[in-house]
Nucleic acid binder design. Structure first.
Lengths: 83, 83
DNA sequence: AGAATATTTAGATAGGCATCTAAATATACA
DNA sequence: TGTATATTTAGATGCCTATCTAAATATTCT
């Protein structure tokens, strides 16, 4: 749903997470350490990004590795171009 | 602020208003009659769209005429293209 | 198996938001 | 000047959300 995408992108922390993931994939812990909030809070943000299909996750041992998912950005672009 | 833009776009009603304004400028009343909510609610949505600079308003007699403001969409596109 | 590490989930709280009704403001018209 | 019309503002309500602490789950290592 487009609304979920915009809602996910409306939070500054989540936008920063996406910016970070442009450079390289990261574990949940690495992401969390870039912020002053708790790991639990970042985990919550990551779930919202996952639900919006903006990132994808893969388990590697103890780590959950997050990576950017560009397909939804293209949908967004397609919507925006109408304006 | 980018967050305000996304927040404004995260609401379905507001996105529909923007879609309608693509075709032509409209008065607040004309916009409100396209929805099943009250005029007060639509007025609230219009204020959020105004604050986000997604629409602009001009008074004409008793009517407030709303029109689309495309500059912010371009900022948004610029941001999205980075992904 | 047991301890340490990585991450998420559960439950609580405070602030934000969409919506409503009722009232206020502004303009036009008779 | 007073009434009707167009629109917004104020105040209330119920829901959603970002955040926290504490606990649960999963995996690795000794």
């Amino acid at each position: 749903m487009l609304g979920d995408t915009f809602k996910a992108l409306s939070d500054e922390t989540r936008r920063e997470i996406l910016m970070m993931l442009r450079k390289s994939d990261m574990t949940a812990g690495e992401i969390a350490e870039s912020f002053s909030t708790t790991h639990a809070t970042i985990s919550h943000h990551l779930k919202i990004l996952r639900d919006a299909n903006l990132v994808s996750m893969e388990r590697h041992g103890q780590n959950n590795i997050y990576s950017l998912n560009t397909t939804v950005f293209q949908d967004l672009l397609a919507w925006l171009v109408n304006f």
